[in-house]
Design a protein around this nucleic acid. Sequence first.
DNA 1: TAAATATATGTAACCGGTTTCACAGTTTTT
DNA 2: AAAAACTGTGAAACCGGTTACATATATTTA
Lengths: 337, 337
Amino acid sequence: MRITISQVAKLAGVSKATVSRTLNNSGYVSEETRKRIQEVIKKYGYTPDSKAINLSKKMTSTVELVLPDTVGPFYNEVIRGVEEILSARGYFTLLTILDTKKERNQARNRYISAILERRVDAAIIFDPTVDKRTFSKIAAVGIPIVSLLKDYQNYGVDSVVVDNFSGASSMIDHLVTEHGYKNIAFVTGPKESSDSEDRLIGYKETLKKHGLSFKNSLIFESDFTFDGGKRVYQQLRPVLRDIQAVFCANDEMALAIMEEMKKEGIVPGKDIAVVGFDDVFWSEYIAPPLTTVHQPMYDLGKISAQRIVSRLFDHESKPIKVVLQTHLVIRKSCGCH
Amino acid sequence: MRITISQVAKLAGVSKATVSRTLNNSGYVSEETRKRIQEVIKKYGYTPDSKAINLSKKMTSTVELVLPDTVGPFYNEVIRGVEEILSARGYFTLLTILDTKKERNQARNRYISAILERRVDAAIIFDPTVDKRTFSKIAAVGIPIVSLLKDYQNYGVDSVVVDNFSGASSMIDHLVTEHGYKNIAFVTGPKESSDSEDRLIGYKETLKKHGLSFKNSLIFESDFTFDGGKRVYQQLRPVLRDIQAVFCANDEMALAIMEEMKKEGIVPGKDIAVVGFDDVFWSEYIAPPLTTVHQPMYDLGKISAQRIVSRLFDHESKPIKVVLQTHLVIRKSCGCH
DNA sequence: TAAATATATGTAACCGGTTTCACAGTTTTT
DNA sequence: AAAAACTGTGAAACCGGTTACATATATTTA
């Protein structure tokens, strides 16, 4: 039932090469022959098989997008940004979601094997837990790679990141100077996450800048998930009376913590400030509306895809780093007293 | 730099065939030879090229997932469900996002061409605007297809849908019998969306069941987006004093409408009821918490992927339809007066 | 008008694997 | 001891396209 180029050639009384030329508008084909071939193509509903094209052209027109399973509502926008650019340029998006809970090698291997097997022409990778050695290995394959949200410029790949330090810093500035808070807890993501780490550093440094010492006892580790936020609240509870604000490394944990507070009759944004990081879609609409640091998620995806595309088209040289700026979004949840 | 199977064969002093057998654990290869080959493979870091494998095996180990750009927070869970199952079975996910705004053919062709070109072994398709003819064409290609959220069982493909009628119906039951509302507006999605259509029918029929006539003047068309919700609010405003509730065909529009109301000092859940459909992640946490109809989004993705996988493995016969049940989630936004 | 160039097409090699088949040496069965 | 079955390997065809090269005719150009 499915017809091949050879059959089309035979039916049109020409050679495979001529059919191929017609298909690709390359080389010379007379009007007459072209028409004859196209009639056969239409009549039999012929479509070239991408698997054969891929092999002979040594490319797949596919770009891999790797995202961790923890990003939650966050990755929506990233995907949209990436897909929009790639599809406009004729590329397909192979989406791989990292299972960060499972044995890491397992999960890691899956997306890496897609690269090693040359299943994709390029990749946009956001793997919070990947180490440098692995990354250089990936980079060594020689296809264009963009590291999303992790700076691996020095390991030979383009990096598109966000200025987490200054994001966190501006939040602390606000909490300290506008509200006069002196004791601010911080809830981190998983320790491997460099985003979380950079935000933590921003938090520490900026406290210092304001002459406030930070205490390790006010730093709580969690995992960027809603459930993680709920769990960490239990550890947070004992210190609640000693602090004026809780700064969470993302919005989901902030939401979870606010919900837990409400259950106990504590009113976030009134009794205590709770702020987040990301500014996901719903941050504005929850109760109280969340003060947070906006990350340009759609742009993150879009710019990554654009970098991939330009790598794919022109052969550029050095790895590039793009740093996108965040900005503070002040809503209600940062008030207290 | 990149090494091929022929080179491995030469380096190990054997033929391509023997290397291939070693790689696939097929046929006979002596322990000795196998070891020698594996040493060469390790030494030179050889990985078979998937493009060649795909061609000779006539398969791609890839499943396409098609989603419209309107689904917003909704598709998160679907993707997760699909990806989880597929990756566990060794398949990759090619994600295509429909641009429902653009000339529809454009967008449509992209995901269809992936199928026609045999870039994927199967596809899970949620295309709200696709017509039956196009769908039978896709089905005719002969690869396993699952139609997500649209019943195309009669057109030869498996369908995984949700019982929109009874979802809407239970919502109306609740609004009428528990709250005694008599005038309920309905905000639809785009007219091509069969989900929206089915919910509308549920709304109409159930009103009738309760002896309430429905009025066309209380049906408003929108497009499932937040902005669309804001826009439709303008049309809704004149009738606000005549109704007790607004039933939106999804949560995003319900949220938008509530936000618009608040701007004007109208308190949703108090002055008027606003309810939605979907029960996305944030529905529970907005103000007021949204009464809505829960759709099992993760399961939708998971079950679709499972059907694809079983089609791919065993050769089954007739197209199957799976209907997932919804359930009512009562929160605060349905109160009024 | 001969040489150079443009047009049109076919042959065959190639992309990098898998798989069928043939063949030879071993081992097992009868 | 001959036949059958098992083990190990290579040659070559094949998957379905693309493309370099050869060839032939038609047009230009000098």
